[in-house]
Amino acid sequence: MREIILDIETSGLDYKEGHRIIEIGCVELNKKEVGSHFHRYINPLKTLTEENIKIHGITNEFLEDKPLFEDVAEEFLSFIQDSSIIAHNANFDVGFLNYELEKLSKPQISKDRVVDTVVIARNRFPGQQVNLDALVKKLKVNTLVDREFHGALKDAKILTDVYLELQGINQMGLQLNERKTEDLNLSGELNLTQIVLTKDETEAHKEFIKNNIPKSNWAKVDKNYE
């Protein structure tokens, strides 16, 4: 089963008030194995406030030459295909995306293919905080990631670990690599050297076991010591 872990950054909290998407980050999961990713910055044609910039660190100057949503929409839809969408507080992310897709008369993301990790986390930790930072600490994943600023791809990668841990899949040692898994070189072989004792060495070893540790497991290996 193919799943897409998704996160966005925006110019504000409500698209109905004119706010827009400024960054999209996605991580692909194939049968719970990390695959490729999708990442785009987007010019919102809207001036970001200083308060907003403090959240994600993305400036107006940085976004000036970035594509519009309409320029990346088809590429985004091609990446997610008909896969399940995994997001934290999914109504926020999917709401913004569907608003933009509807304006372009593009297919929207249906609710029946969306999984909200907030719901999963609340079932796992009832009555506790379940924001992404809290879950990182509870589940002890990606504890070394710099969280001074939010970032769509960064948060999607973190959410990937969180999602898998919430499902009970041990992700110790998992690295969200920029490369696809098929690019990894897994052809290395172990060079094992077989050690063969001479007849005299074997007899000397038996004699040592017999005289010094006759009740050991070593002695039981040879019928002479039973």
Rank of each mutant, 00 (worst) to 15 (best):
I24V: 09
K138I: 00
V130G: 04
S105G: 11
L29Y: 05
F69N: 05
D155N: 15
L144N: 10
P44G: 04
I53H: 06
N185F: 12
V221K: 07
A152K: 00
E3I: 08
K210C: 10
E61Q: 03
K206N: 14
I109C: 01
V118H: 07
G173C: 06
G95C: 06
L192V: 07
K199V: 07
A219V: 05
E74P: 10
E226T: 15
R122G: 01
L63N: 10
D82P: 00
V94H: 05
R113T: 05
R147P: 01
D71R: 01
A73W: 13
S110V: 04
S216W: 07
A152Q: 00
V196S: 08
N98A: 10
K140C: 05
E3Y: 14
A156K: 04
I169R: 06
E75H: 11
F76Q: 03
V162W: 09
R124A: 05
V145C: 01
L197V: 12
A134V: 08
I158T: 13
T198W: 13
G35S: 08
E203R: 11
S84E: 07
N211F: 10
E75I: 08
E9Y: 01
K31T: 02
P44S: 08
S83F: 07
V136Y: 00
Y41I: 11
D183M: 04
E61V: 08
A73D: 12
T181Q: 12
N98G: 10
I169V: 14
Q128T: 10
L45E: 14
G18F: 02
D93P: 02
K111D: 10
N185G: 09
S11D: 05
Q167T: 06
T193P: 12
R40E: 14
E3F: 14
F76G: 13
P126S: 05
F62K: 12
F62Q: 12
E17K: 11
L6D: 07
N170P: 01
Q175W: 04
E100N: 15
T117N: 09
D82E: 14
V72A: 13
L184P: 08
N212M: 03
D112Y: 02
N217Q: 15
D200C: 02
K137W: 13
E189N: 13
F149G: 05
L192K: 05
T181L: 14
I5G: 09
L174Q: 03
T10M: 13
L77K: 12
A121P: 05
I86Y: 02
V221D: 03
L68R: 15
I24E: 01
V94F: 04
V136G: 00
N98K: 10
H37D: 15
G151R: 08
